[in-house]
Design a protein around this nucleic acid. Structure first.
Lengths: 341, 341
DNA sequence: CTGAAAGCGCTTACAG
DNA sequence: CTGAAAGCGCTTACAG
């Protein structure tokens, strides 16, 4: 049924080894043999079997994209873009792409090394990993090269790709401050999450560069949860009517807040200016349209795979493994007002 | 380095075959041996190598989810949900899951059978396939079981999973008609696309059940493109001011139209009622919120894999391979008015 | 109930 | 430049 390398070899009057060498672009094959083999293989419809290849070869590259924990539906499209970036890069560079959706629970059942071993994974890109996940520690000891997206393990042997969250949130906050916002509050994610810490740092940097001092209510944690975010805002505005600007660590929260403010007849941006993070498409269809920080997820995916590729080919220790991908501040209607006079 | 079946066998004082049988749950292994092998394997951290397994075994199931052509960003989250459904089902049933993003161009380079052969694919779920794609013909002749999502090949040997598009659009249209819409127009996708044909049939069914006769402008084709959709609506309303209801074959188009209508100060639902299809999250955040037809993509994914699984295990010819998954009509503000008196 | 052995489809030192 | 052969890590008839 399926035509194998042996069939081709026989038909071409050559050995398995020769056919294999042709298909792997070995240099020292006579032009004549090469052409004959290729023609015949083509005619027979031969395609090398990937499983056999990965099994017998030490040099087959298999890159795994590991998406940790089921992403909330709001974030779905983000991962799809990033996945597409990884996929294309891998495909274009002769690497095998495999996708895994893992959970914290599964990580307990099987170690990272076992996971890689069982699937012949030679390099992994991991997104959505939490610092409390088992893999977080295990990847440091693993011999499999790893690129982390949006998480900096602080380990020189591990690749990291993300935007500069500090600088991005700094700039986002400055949009409000330049527009004359007097009492900005940050609606942050989780107090432990690295991106939250970074974005908070950026937020505070902006305040300080404008000579502002944070109040005790200036940072609120809502765990990236829409309901919590709304509840926090509700209470915040009741207790501190002076608040006139909200910097949200995610669009998901910002969107829910925007909905809430509209229902409360609180005008955006007149009464309160609002900026999110991630630039979900939804924000562009809301009224008012939502300002945000755009991340180029496809590029992040592509860059991650590029970095991983270099690491798998034995990147020098000295070379930097920390890549910052560009982002973009999208100013829209939710910050489209200047209160300066 | 990596611990193999041989290492475990040696340590357990058994043969490779015995260890293999234990891991594959063969029935006739003594309880004693089974336990000893399991304990030792566990202790050694043994995990069976998947590549070796698929290579040597005829019975390993590899299900491929093939997403045809890069999906437009608007549709991204749809596929992510469906993918998640397939993944979970495969994972829970001991099947290997692999994902491929293919393009029409790639389909020309390698036949469907070659594609499956090279990756040891034993069953495929394909989404986004067009009737003009090479695979569309090739799957009929292939010995690899295939489930098509959202496309009915009309071939009894091929599985098909989707909602009942005819009935869904019928119901969606009836929402408008019940609300007193007098001159409804359908903004359809492509005149060749199967879902478009089905949804149009449903639309017309609804009209006829209300005793309405289509006018020459009653169905407009916009190729699922936002710009075209808006342009069509613009012209439509200019030439036929009597139009007071729009049935859109996709939310993507409906959203763009809703934006346009708002800019034109045409009131929805007062002047024109509007219903979409797909129930993208965006619609729920627009003003007014968009009525639509919800598809349970995760369920579609899950059902597809379930059907494929049965087909791979040699489903009887007689058994139906056409699965209709439930959908839901979501009535929201864009149709929230009754013009009856 | 278990072992010995062939085989899955490739790759790659080793010779020549 | 090319062939013969061992080996990648498993599975599975075949015996016993």
């Amino acid at each position: 049924m399926a035509v194998t390398i042996r069939d081709v070899a026989r038909a071409a009057g050559a050995s398995n080894g020769t056919v294999s060498r042709v298909f792997n672009n070995y240099p020292d094959i006579s032009q004549k043999t090469r052409e004959r083999v290729i023609t015949i293989a083509q005619k027979m419809g031969y395609v090398p079997n990937v499983a056999a290849r990965t099994l017998s070869s030490k040099s087959m590259q298999v890159v795994a994209l590991i998406l940790s924990d089921l992403l909330s539906s709001k974030e779905n499209s983000i991962s799809m873009e990033m996945m597409s970036g990884v996929y294309r890069y891998a495909d274009d560079h002769g690497m095998q792409f495999v996708l895994y959706l893992t959970t914290t629970k599964q990580q307990h059942e099987k170690s990272f090394d076992q996971f890689c071993q069982e699937r012949n994974i030679t390099g992994a890109i991991i997104q959505g990993l939490k610092t409390t996940d088992p893999y977080f520690e295990e990847i440091a000891k693993s011999s499999v090269p790893v690129v982390l997206v949006d998480l900096d393990r602080g380990d020189p042997s591990i690749g990291t790709v993300s935007i500069d969250n500090v600088q991005a949130e700094n700039e986002a906050t400055q949009v409000l401050l330049r527009n004359g916002v007097q009492d900005p509050v940050m609606i942050n994610g989780s107090i432990n999450a690295q991106v939250s810490i970074q974005r908070e740092a950026g937020f505070k940097l902006a305040l300080s560069s404008f000579g502002r001092t944070p109040k005790d209510y200036t940072v609120q944690y809502a765990n990236f949860d829409q309901e919590i975010a709304v509840a926090k805002v509700q209470r915040l505005l009741r207790e501190h009517p002076s608040v006139d600007g909200l910097v949200c660590a995610s669009d998901s929260m910002a969107i829910a807040i925007l909905e809430y403010l509209r229902k409360q007849k609180i005008r955006v941006p007149e009464d309160i200016q609002l900026i999110g993070f991630d630039d979900l498409i939804i924000g562009q269809y809301m009224t008012p349209t939502l300002s945000s920080v755009e991340q180029h997820m496809e590029l992040i995916g592509q860059q991650s795979c590029h970095l991983l590729n270099k690491m798998m080919r034995g990147m020098k220790k000295s070379e930097p493994k920390r890549i910052f991908v560009p982002y973009e501040i999208m100013e829209r209607d939710s910050t489209a007002i200047s209160k300066e006079n």
